[in-house]
């Protein structure tokens, strides 16, 4: 049920693009205005979010330590899981951002006969890695539309990605992985009881968007029926990036579906959970080194508080202290 409305929303977007372009011929709206608007919303929103977090102070030094601290010289510290300096923090963040280190830790113990065996529960990690990396590579591949002459690294990536050399045009491996990973992430939300219990409509919406984006892209590339005018696409995109936008007709409707879903994703990004992408860099349990006993962490809004002073304490208990032989300040 929670999936239905987000699904309908994406269907609505698809129809909107089809009707808008095919029936109403609003090439400029869907080819230029919407992408620009989305880019603007994305940029402003993204900056707003990051600035807002950045301006919020980190009053306390709260890294989550996941290994041995640096203490006595003969005890080997775990410099990455419990970093004592910037180098360790950078390494920890890199592992977290590029390899999803914490998700990787997800282990489950099973009894094999009488003995314990540690099996690792990597599915979420694997699904997450597959999705994020294939998405990234696909985005990089799309850079071919953003440059007059395609940069060599992009060409190299395209070559590697199609190395299986299946079909014409050659199948991109990342396309398959992307669709499979998004499908997996969707399926675990509707099948695993624990995940089902915590899922909100807002979790389905981006998944459907991504599925829509992936499917429209794949149809465009591999199915003759949907094939679009790539030269026209490049012309449109180059116009957009060079800030000399011009509506291009005759590209093929499905391209506008693809573009509208991408625009929606971008516009939606800063206002949703998708902000975890920049957010992870600012996470105080991960990006601080465990050196709070070595360097004083300053809280910018630290303020004086009412305490019960020793003097007040002694006034309360002076006689009793004297009786017990505890030294006092004033006899």
């Amino acid at each position: 049920m929670k999936a239905l409305l987000p699904f309908l929303a994406v269907v609505f977007l698809v129809l909107l693009a089809v009707v808008g372009v095919k029936a109403a011929g609003l090439y400029f709206v869907f080819g230029v205005a919407v992408p620009y608007a989305a880019a603007a919303v994305f940029l402003l929103g993204f900056v707003y979010r990051v600035v807002k977090w950045g301006k919020t102070p980190v009053p306390f030094h709260i890294p989550t330590t996941c290994g041995q601290q640096k203490s006595l010289p003969w005890i080997k510290p775990n410099g990455i899981e419990n970093p004592s300096g910037t180098g360790g923090v950078v390494a920890r963040m890199l592992l977290e951002v590029f390899l999803f280190r914490s998700l990787f830790k997800n282990r489950k113990t099973k009894m094999k006969g009488e003995y314990l065996s540690y099996s690792w529960a990597p599915w979420l990690w694997l699904g997450g890695m597959a999705f994020h990396w294939s998405f990234l590579l696909i985005v990089v591949r799309h850079l071919r539309f953003f440059f007059q002459s395609v940069p060599a690294p992009v060409q190299g990536l395209e070559h590697l990605d199609s190395i299986l050399n299946w079909g014409v045009p050659a199948l991109y491996i990342t396309d398959v992985i992307f669709l499979a990973a998004v499908t997996f992430l969707f399926l675990r939300r509707v099948t695993l009881s624990q995940v089902k219990a915590i899922t909100l409509p807002a979790d389905f919406f981006p998944l459907f968007l991504l599925l829509g984006i992936g499917c429209s892209g794949v149809l465009m590339r591999y199915l003759k029926f949907f094939r679009v005018d790539v030269v026209g696409v490049k012309e449109l995109v180059m116009g957009l990036v060079s800030l000399h936008p011009a509506a291009v007709s005759g590209i093929g409707t499905i391209f506008y579906v693809h573009l509208l879903l991408i625009s929606t994703l971008f516009a939606y990004f800063p206002w949703s959970k998708l902000v975890h992408a920049p957010g992870v860099f600012l996470s105080p349990t991960r990006n601080l080194s465990n050196n709070s006993r070595v360097v004083r962490h300053v809280n910018p809004w630290n303020y004086p508080v009412k305490v019960h002073t020793y003097e007040e304490y002694e006034n309360d208990f002076r006689e009793k202290m004297k009786m017990a032989g505890v030294p006092v300040e004033r006899e």
Binding site: M111, S193, A197
Partner: peptide, 12 residues
Amino acid sequence: AEMLRSVENRFT
């Protein structure tokens, strides 16, 4: 109940 049923794991 679903949680109790789902994971066959002595420790978790």
